[in-house]
């Protein structure tokens, strides 16, 4: 009960803002700024008026949302795996790192939307192009962080591993990967929010399905409540992805925190 009250105490501004927004937009009657109730109704119309056996989800919901989330996650996982693997190698081999460091810095500095025309010219419009844009745009934070984490491993651990004669594989999975994990997770988190942005923009220019396509569709048919509603859904998606990631991070890195507490 106390927790509920405290949460309510923290969230009191939300209903206030919603009511003020509703009143102001109703008074202004500007078609570009529909009141929140209209937006909610349009969201319900768009996604939740399907048949009950499909949990009331409409065709649009079942088509667009999984397509978008699938591409986002596919790109993110690919970038995470490749970025971590390359980053760890570069972190442990300073000589290699010296050769590619300027190239990596340069690739990272290219604003990701510049990749859109490039990959659109290289591939046709479709998932392949979108996943390529996402992977190439978000791999750098993971790669750079993994290299950073692998480079600064406690000398003592490295020496201990040598004394015990760990094989290369053992050293990688028992020493380097766990030691670099907190940094890798920091990179993965940045990449996840970037992936959402690149998913949306790649769907805005080159797609026939997905949330971004639906957003563009609503805008082209001057369905402003639909535009607002889709943006709300994207916000919710970003929030859910970030919260899920933080929960997973807390789980995976719990040993890290406890290890730090004892020292």
């Amino acid at each position: 009960m106390k927790r509920v009250l405290r949460a309510a105490g923290r969230l009191w501004a939300v209903p206030v803002v919603l009511v003020v927004w509703e009143l102001v937009t109703r008074a202004a009657e500007n078609l570009s700024f529909p009141p929140p109730t209209t937006i909610a109704a349009s969201m319900y119309e768009m996604w939740l008026t399907g048949p009950p056996e499909r949990l009331w989800l409409t065709d649009a919901a079942l088509e667009n949302i999984p397509a978008s989330v699938g591409r986002l996650l596919a790109g993110w996982v690919l970038a995470g795996v490749i970025g971590t693997a390359v980053g760890l190698v570069l972190g442990r081999r300073p000589l290699y790192f010296r050769f590619v460091d300027p190239l990596v810095q340069f690739a990272r500095a290219i604003p990701p939307p510049m990749l859109l025309p490039f990959f659109m010219a290289l591939f046709a419009i479709g998932p392949q192009m979108q996943i390529n844009v996402i992977v190439f745009g978000i791999i750098w934070p993971v790669l750079i962080n993994a290299a950073e984490g692998a480079r600064h491993i406690d000398r003592q651990y490295v020496d201990t591993a040598r004394v015990f004669g760990l094989s290369l594989k053992q050293r990688l999975f028992l020493l380097v990967l766990p030691a670099a994990m907190p940094k890798i997770f920091a990179g993965l988190r940045v990449s996840l929010s970037l992936a959402l942005i690149l998913m949306v923009i790649s769907e805005l220019v080159g797609s026939t399905d997905g949330i971004g396509f639906q957003l563009l569709d609503a805008q082209r048919s001057y369905d402003l409540p639909g535009v607002w509603g889709t943006i709300v859904v994207l916000g919710v998606l970003g929030y859910v992805l970030n919260s899920a990631f933080l929960a997973a991070e807390r789980r995976v890195l719990s040993w890290h925190r406890t290890a730090k507490q004892t020292t």
Binding site: I197, V200, L216, L224, V227, I231, L234, G235, L241, N242
Partner: peptide, 14 residues
């Protein structure tokens, strides 16, 4: 904050 800012482009166009 989690709303991807580029998603606002279609809204801004209107």
């Amino acid at each position: 904050r989690p709303i991807p800012s580029l998603a606002l482009i279609p809204l801004a166009l209107a």
